[in-house]
Design a protein around this nucleic acid. Structure first.
Lengths: 190, 190
DNA sequence: CGTCTATTTGAATGTACTCAAAAGCGGTGG
DNA sequence: CCACCGCTTTTGAGTACATTCAAATAGACG
């Protein structure tokens, strides 16, 4: 459980045993059953979670009651409404387990505590934010340019593990496509 | 010129006279003629600019040679390829003046120097980044949900100054619409 | 004034959507 | 363990929104 987090962090930063101890003292375990919420729109996102097992979707609801999927998160991903977490203002997103999940979660105080004692953790977080920022830019780009099929191919290419694991309609929404259309696209590709 | 920057900063943070002095020592003026580039794809974005006069577009070129507009920036906006600026890696965006421009620019060292001497500037930058991050999230959301017309209305509503000032085809690309379609949308609205 | 680019308009086309229904799949309770 | 229910996915048919292509008009700039 923590081992998985440490492995992940170690791809970017070096962690001594005492660093690991600090970190484990500042995360706690959280389990979610399928369909349970990690966060609901309008609430404050007090925690940032690291997914060690399972899968979650982050989404808003539009005027017609449809889910607009912002993110799909599996093992090794971080989840939160970042804006709400950092500012303490209400979240715009819902975050919901689509499989039974195990996570490690920290709040702002934990984060501060780790930053203070494990300075390289701040670097890790900064890099994560940067990567996330770029991922959003690229995704915007693909929404501006490509066709539905191109977007789908880019997606499966980038996240093969996700596309076999998550309901079609969730992926469709993530890509801004109607589920029927994505079903047809999949058929045509084979 | 600097006065405009100070006004802008003062909406968020307090600046003493000596703060202002530090800041003015760490920005320099830059002028761009229409069609000149502030940054070209593949180069490193050494500077972050604050627009005091004029207008720029930030874009990539897709496989068909079309511009995909990521951002349109007028007076009071900051421009850079943020990722490239922070990491020193090559930029993915082109930034080009679409009017004659006057800007105040800083490099990473200037930024560091201001952070050191005017700590509240770091807060300003952080808030700017957060707002920018959210703006991208909302824009993604509108690309997932709405029709072309809805996106256009949201845009004109949010940036009325821009929609009267910038070529139609630039706005069309920003919204992911063909220029002919946007022309028709405008006609239908009246 | 002439050239080049941007915008508008028209007509035809196409991609992706909506609506409806059938088939598939998974979970639950008898 | 099987039958049933609900939800997801697939398929079909018709439609609509937006695109493409082409041409005319308007506007900007040297």
């Amino acid at each position: 459980m923590f081992e998985f987090l440490f492995e992940n962090l170690s791809k970017t930063i070096f962690l001594s045993e005492s660093d690991k101890k600090i970190i484990s003292q500042n995360f706690k375990q959280k389990k979610l059953l399928k369909r349970q919420f990690f966060l609901q729109e309008g609430n404050i996102s007090f925690h940032t979670g690291f997914v060690t097992k399972g899968c979650l979707k982050t989404y808003t609801i539009d005027n017609n009651g449809n889910e607009l999927i912002y993110q799909i998160s599996i093992e090794g991903w971080w989840v939160t409404d970042l804006f709400s977490f950092l500012t303490g203002l209400p979240a715009m997103y819902n975050i919901e387990a689509i499989e039974n999940c195990e996570m490690l979660i920290m709040d702002l105080a934990n984060r501060e505590e780790i930053f203070k004692n494990v300075p390289q953790f701040e670097r890790y977080m900064r890099l994560m934010l940067e990567n996330n920022y770029i991922a959003n830019q690229r995704r915007l780009n693909s929404m501006l340019g490509g066709t539905a099929e191109e977007r789908y191919l880019t997606f499966t290419n980038k996240y093969p593990e996700i596309s076999n694991r998550v309901p079609l309609k969730t992926i469709a929404s993530y890509l801004g496509i109607a589920p029927e259309s994505l079903s047809r696209i999949r058929r045509n590709i084979k």
